[in-house]
Design a protein around this nucleic acid. Sequence first.
DNA 1: CGCCTTTGACCAGCGC
DNA 2: GCGCTGGTCAAAGGCG
Length: 191
Amino acid sequence: MDYPENPNSNLGFSNLTGNSDLWSLDFELSEYLMLEDHHHHHGVDQDSTSQSMASSEQVMGGSSGSTGATLRNNNIRCKDGVKKNKMEAGHRVAFRTKSELEVMDDGFKWRKYGKKSVKNSPNPRNYYKCSSGGCNVKKRVERDRDDSSYVITTYEGTHNHESPCMVYYNQMPYMIPNGWTSQASSHSSTP
DNA sequence: CGCCTTTGACCAGCGC
DNA sequence: GCGCTGGTCAAAGGCG
């Protein structure tokens, strides 16, 4: 496993191509959100994070406007925002995708640790955490309360390890749908 | 046998 | 201070 050093591999969900069936079903990126004080300018920076969402913009731009991305433009808002500074551990990104499956394989392995129902929403919210030891990345998945066909996924934190199964295609990280199962227990770094 | 989901309890922050 | 809401824990069970 000798992958080139790629700084933006922390995101994990960088590029979604039509390979993964799960995402390509109705994958349609209506909206992305970046919280934290990580204010980015409009398409100026070539930062790793912006690169990932740049590819996201391609998806949302390329898809037909049937969904009306701006329709729900103010639907999702950073309500929690930066109320607390304790979680400076990483960035926070929220995606709103159209999919029947709420659990999308982004190349990482997650362990569910909680489920709560949100007020004013008929659908519960699921809390996941990265299974890798020492990795504190958390993920929050809920369905849009207006359109239950949409799924809002919020990533929080930065992975301190590579994606269990990621192949680098040209310059872009490229994800394989579900192949990580075979090498889940490669090494245990925690004594 | 190990890892994962489930589910209620617990806790902390905020508003009133 | 109390209640609400959201986030996490942890025990117990399930599945490969």
